[in-house]
Nucleic acid binder design. Structure first.
Lengths: 256, 256
DNA sequence: GAGTGGTCTAGACCACCCT
DNA sequence: GGGTGGTCTAGACCACTCC
């Protein structure tokens, strides 16, 4: 496709073009702050239509790699490595991508009726039950996070069958056809309770970084509602947004 | 455009269609978890091509309002209100959108040579100077955040000329042609230092929620590098991401 | 005024989901 | 097998930036 770089013919056209452009940008071919070739030039170079080029560039735009503005060529914003969705929803994927050894153990599994709020989050009928799983997660043996996950029964029954010392939970779920496709995240600060302190080896009252996450499958059905609490200094969340597409929001908290 | 709803003919076609669909979803016309009409049906209803419909639906997809999957109709994920980019980058915009009274005062303005890291973030030449502005931000008179912003000289000189008691800084900047178009955010937890404690009225050593943000203008030129520290309980950050487009990332912190 | 990205059209084929 | 969204093409016009 392009001279020096390997280009295995897999995936759709625009994904291959996007991957090629990503590599070129990462290799510094256009420099930081440099200008990309015009869409028409890229279309000719890759032998595809302008629409396909625009699809590829749209992906880079969403990742915050390039600008786009009418009247001028696109400008390289940065070379930031973008993590996959799996690395976001799965602690195990994330840890592995860091070269760290993910671990963990299940502290508690509980099946009980869902309360009003839980039913709303998981879009369940009145009287429906949920499965609560409390886990400690470790990086290379060091506890870094406490995870409280809530599953609808059809998912929870699969989760409950996973061995307590299994490293990954999303992987066995995938094998049973439970796919995570969309997630809403809320990030804020919370104070460690007695459970957190015991499991993480900190003091009750210490501050923890909290991520609450609601995940749905490709059909839009909620499959998980989780609250993760991280020890300070172990994790940071990064987001890119632009005047065109903003997925990040800042929310006020009066109470909760 | 669509019977009941007001539809002023402003903006591009696909934006008008998107706005109309957003309203319909917010009004619960398809229900939560309900299915949208097929693209072809929408194209006919609005009298536009399928491509335009897809552009509109792409915007809703990016906001996490609907799913998209080959073979099935789109499903409504939620009705979440999406905040504008301005509400994210500007404290003032954000506060106003909450119905709160934004306030603040400048504590310190300082012009000095940029160090290596600052030069890298703002993409400046060796020897370049920057302007540092330290501000306290309030909601309805209550201090909630300390902001340390770094500007390249050409922006900093404009900022320095803004009255110290001005509520908004981004608005006067906009009037001088400085537009914020893209931003990278990093969110984590940090411990309050003596300055933070004094300005926010907390204890040194207390935990604060930190957001670091690098913003660029439409041409891709860095215009601001800021570190904001929020009192616990005053703010939460929310993100939507999907297997298709992920702008959020979880990063490991060994040190910083 | 030339060059560039943003928008829009009309049509085609394919991969996938469902029944 | 029928319906659906995903991909791709070829062309057109326009709004904007910059020289």
């Amino acid at each position: 496709m392009q001279d020096g770089r390997a280009e295995p013919p897999k995936g759709t056209l625009y994904r291959r073009v996007a991957a090629d452009l990503r590599e070129a940008i990462a290799a510094g071919e256009y420099g930081s702050g440099g200008r990309l070739p015009a869409e028409s030039a890229l279309a000719e170079r890759y032998g595809v239509s302008r629409g396909t080029i625009r699809q590829a560039l749209g992906a880079l735009r969403a990742d915050g790699l390039v600008t786009s503005r009418r009247g001028t060529r696109r400008v390289v914003l940065g070379t930031a490595r973008v993590q996959s969705f799996a690395e976001l929803v799965s602690f195990t994927h994330w840890a592995r991508s860091l070269g760290e050894e993910p671990g963990g153990r299940v502290e508690r599994v509980e099946r009980r009726p869902a309360d009003v709020r839980e039913r709303e989050q998981l879009r369940l009928e009145p009287g429906a039950e949920v499965v609560l799983v409390l886990r400690v997660r470790t990086l290379s043996g060091r506890p870094v996070m406490v995870e409280r996950s809530l599953y609808p029964l059809w998912v929870g029954e699969l989760v409950a069958r996973i061995p307590p010392d299994a490293v990954s939970h999303t992987e066995p779920l995938q094998e049973h056809g439970v796919v995570f496709a969309d997630a809403d995240h809320t990030i804020d600060l919370v104070v460690a309770d007695a459970d957190d302190a015991r499991l993480l080896g900190c003091e009750a009252g210490d501050a923890l970084l909290r991520e609450r996450r609601r995940s749905t499958d490709p059909a839009g059905t909620p499959v998980e509602w989780s609250e993760d609490r991280y020890l300070p200094g172990t994790v940071a969340f990064t987001v890119h947004n632009s005047i065109a597409t903003s997925a990040l929001a800042r929310r006020h908290r009066r109470s909760d």
